[in-house]
């Protein structure tokens, strides 16, 4: 099997590994690094459960070769929260009960995080457009939209000096 030497950063930690060329990024993250927060569902890039960031871009890790992260900065759902606690998006998902089985949740959290970085105050329509490629079979989506709006609000009030707690 052909392999490639890959040097990358995953959740801020340097990683060096020889990776089979045909290994998918999600397989590398889950099976080699034990980062099982990233989930596989559709396997065809349409459900979003496997979303991770590669150089801040959200990608479907089920559709990307692991070798392609050479030199890149990878962040998974495990890399979001800090010792200070959950991120505003994560906290909003908890507060708005925007999850049930939770299998889609890491992907939604990643996608919503990406959205709010680019568009800090999205409209509901922008939220829906951005999340059209993420499937949730449990919630009916309404609580997820609420969570994103809620997170945007708490981030912008934190931004404007009001302390978010």
């Amino acid at each position: 099997m052909s392999e490639t030497l890959v040097r990358t950063t995953v959740n801020g930690r340097p990683v060096e590994a020889r990776i089979p060329n045909r290994m998918l990024l999600v397989e590398f993250l889950r099976d080699r690094l034990g980062l099982t927060g990233t989930k596989v569902s559709c396997g065809m890039q349409v459900c979003g459960a496997c979303t991770v960031f590669v150089d801040e871009r959200p990608v479907s890790s089920c559709g990307v070769l692991a070798c392609d992260i050479d030199g890149a900065d990878v962040v998974t759902v495990e890399g979001l929260a800090t010792d200070d606690g959950l991120t505003p998006v994560q906290q909003a998902f908890v507060d708005c009960s925007a999850l049930q089985c939770g299998f889609c949740t890491p992907g939604f959290v990643m996608m919503c995080t990406a959205l709010l970085r680019k568009t800090p105050n999205p409209t509901e329509e922008q939220v829906a457009h951005h999340l059209e490629g993420n499937l949730c079979r449990c919630t009916g989506y309404e609580p997820i939209v609420e969570a994103v709006m809620h997170a945007a609000e708490s981030m912008s009030s934190a931004e404007s000096g009001t302390r978010h707690d």
């Binding site: 889950r30 034990g34 980062l35 099982t36 927060g37 990233t38 989930k39 596989v40 998974t76 759902v77 495990e78 979001l80 929260a81 959950l86 994560q90 998902f93 908890v94 507060d95 009960s97 999850l99 939770g102 299998f103 949740t105 890491p106 959290v109």
Partner: peptide, 23 residues
């Protein structure tokens, strides 16, 4: 009362373990 789900934090951080994660 609508207390927060006890599994919510584990599910938003990726810490929640499903059968497919078991090794």
């Amino acid at each position: 009362r609508s207390v927060p789900r006890t599994d919510a934090v584990a599910k938003v951080t990726g810490a929640a373990v499903y059968a497919v994660d078991v090794v």
